[in-house]
Design a protein around this nucleic acid. Structure first.
Length: 255
DNA sequence: ATGGCTATGTAGCATAGA
């Protein structure tokens, strides 16, 4: 089973890239973030015509998440239970017996902002919920844009980013607590090239200069981690005209 | 390298992203 995550930064703009990518990579399930589309305008037909089924939770302008899968997503749930959040940042579904959580973690803006405090509160609620989910779904994968670079090796210039948002100690501690629930960072299960990133700023020719961050992740429960044979970042879509600033991340799970 | 792109909503810029 091939599962993936991709922050598309507008599903409307990136639909051609997504459809091309689905055709080429043939993933079984893709978790999409930043669809920026309300549910009534979700491009269901185009995706279903490509042989995929959809589950989505969106809003106008900001946020928005979706799960796209070859098999119908089952037991679809949106949001973090008990956490009142007007942002559409989470959708979960079961595909081929695997529970998938698609998450768009708040960005946090700056470490002294209200948005940062919201990010940490959000992550605490996320952690509490995932701990419970892990018990009811031993085959659990949490895919998404975490907006956290877990370690200095995930940052092109750790000194410049030290203690800034995406890299601050409280955010990294929150990420480690997620792992502590019993998840593995699938990308680090295997040896990877240096300077492997999933996001590059649109400005400053950051992609060409390999100035990026690894902030999109696929966390796997222990049971799924034992099945994981590969995890890769596909930088090809980032090279296209009008790309998303994020690259897709793909994990392969043995049957 | 200092918000330098990009997308959205909306009608000339404001907000957000990371």
């Amino acid at each position: 089973m091939r599962i993936a995550t991709w922050n598309v930064n507008s599903l409307k703009v990136r639909l051609p890239h997504l459809l091309d990518w689905l055709a080429r990579q043939q993933p079984d399930a893709v978790c999409i973030q930043e669809t920026k589309v309300e549910d009534a305008k979700f491009p269901r037909e185009a995706i279903e015509s490509a042989g995929y089924r959809v589950a989505f939770s969106g809003q106008k302008t900001y946020n928005g998440v979706a799960i796209i899968a070859k098999n119908e997503p089952e037991d679809v749930r949106a949001g973090i239970p008990g956490f009142d959040d007007e942002h559409k940042r989470v959708i979960a579904a079961t595909v081929q017996g695997v529970r998938l959580v698609c998450a768009y973690v708040p960005n946090g803006q700056t470490v002294d902002s209200d948005k940062y405090r919201y990010k940490l509160r959000w992550l605490a609620a996320f952690e509490a919920w995932l701990g419970a989910e892990l018990h009811s779904h031993p085959e659990l994968a949490v895919l998404g844009d975490y907006n956290i670079a877990p370690a200095d090796e995930d940052v092109h210039d750790p000194a410049a980013w030290k203690d800034l948002v995406l890299c601050s100690a409280p955010e990294r501690a929150a990420f480690q607590r997620l792992l502590g629930l019993g998840f593995k960072d699938s990308f680090r299960l295997l040896t990877q090239a240096e300077r492997s990133y999933t996001w590059w700023d649109y400005r400053m020719m950051a992609f060409r200069r390999k100035m990026g961050m690894r902030i999109d992740h696929i966390l796997l429960s222990q049971q799924l981690a034992t099945r994981c044979g590969a995890c890769l970042i596909d930088i090809e879509p980032r090279k296209l005209e009008r790309p998303s600033d994020h690259a897709p991340v793909v994990a392969e799970l043995a049957d």
